[in-house]
């Protein structure tokens, strides 16, 4: 191994492994241990229940969709923030972080108050046939809300560091604005967009507080998987709760590994430097 100026590889690695073990792995191992009470067959039986299936579908489907929406909208918002100077830019920039800071229950209640059929916004939407509160659409809205800052904050520094020269070069080589964006700017942003996507996805899958207020929690329709877990806990059925947790954990892991593989592939140009 190459000698570094600053020593401490052994110390930092040792600390990292111990810390991660205590904070992350130990609780997860306990979860798996508890889930083993119902066993593999129990998990399969759980998965066969339409209510569980519907909840998992809503949680993961909603989270994927919300992360996708956040990537598209986040790119546009970040673009405006980074590329243009306009009055109120700094205020807008500060607003981005609010979903981070707000207790999620507060966000959920606020969203519900606004989008409920008698809320400020909901009362105009309902006559149009758009019902947000107490539907899967409401779940999606809450998931978009909590995931949004992740995309903007991961993208912002990367977009700021893009060289203007590269775009000038593309234009001078005859590329249109759209071609420059699609062929030059976007490909260099994709790895970062995937990071933002993964973070927003992870947050939306695990989100509980803000979603349950607006979701209405109608079984088979607007009930999310974390809520099922809480319900099992309320019934002191710890084993089933843990089993559900393990199922969610497995799905999340698969999704994050996929995103990470995709990201590696889109960053192949930066992998081996000279």
């Amino acid at each position: 191994m190459r000698r570094r100026v600053l020593p401490g590889f052994g110390l930092s690695l040792g600390f990292a492994v111990t810390y991660l073990g205590l904070i992350v792995l130990l609780p997860l191992a306990a979860l798996a241990w508890k889930a083993s009470d119902v066993g593999f067959a129990g998990i399969l039986k759980l998965l066969a229940s339409p209510r569980t299936l519907a909840a998992l579908k809503l949680s993961f489907g909603g989270a994927l969709l919300a992360a996708g929406i956040n990537v598209v909208v986040g790119l546009m918002v970040t673009w405006a923030l980074v590329r243009y100077r306009f009055p109120g830019r700094r205020i807008l920039d500060a607003l981005i972080d609010l979903p981070f800071a707000l207790p999620t229950a507060v966000a959920g209640i606020a969203l519900t108050a606004i989008y409920a059929p008698n809320g400020w916004f909901g009362r105009w939407l309902v006559p149009l046939g758009i019902q947000v509160a107490y539907t899967p659409l409401g779940v999606l809205l809450a998931m978009v809300f909590v995931g949004f800052p992740f995309v903007v904050r991961t993208l912002q520094p990367v977009l700021q560091s893009l060289e203007q020269d590269v775009e000038d070069a593309a234009e001078s080589l005859g590329a249109t604005g759209l071609q420059t964006f699609l062929r030059v700017v976007l490909p260099t942003l994709v790895p970062t967009l995937l990071t933002g996507f993964a973070l927003a996805l992870a947050r939306a899958v695990g989100e509980y507080g803000s979603v349950i207020f607006i979701a209405g929690n109608i079984p088979l329709r607007s009930e999310i998987a974390p809520l099922l877990i809480v319900q099992r806990l309320d019934e002191f059925d710890y084993a089933t709760a843990a089993a559900l947790g393990v199922v969610m954990l497995a799905f999340s892991l698969v999704l994050l590994v996929l995103v990470s593989a995709l990201q590696r592939w889109t960053r192949r140009w930066a992998e081996q430097s000279a």
Partner: peptide, 21 residues
């Protein structure tokens, strides 16, 4: 416009497209 002008442009810091071979 720049794209119609048919000029070749070379920059100090190369401005290569780093994601392309």
């Amino acid at each position: 416009s720049a794209r119609e002008r048919n000029v070749g442009l070379v920059f100090q810091h190369y401005a290569l497209f780093r994601h392309l071979t």
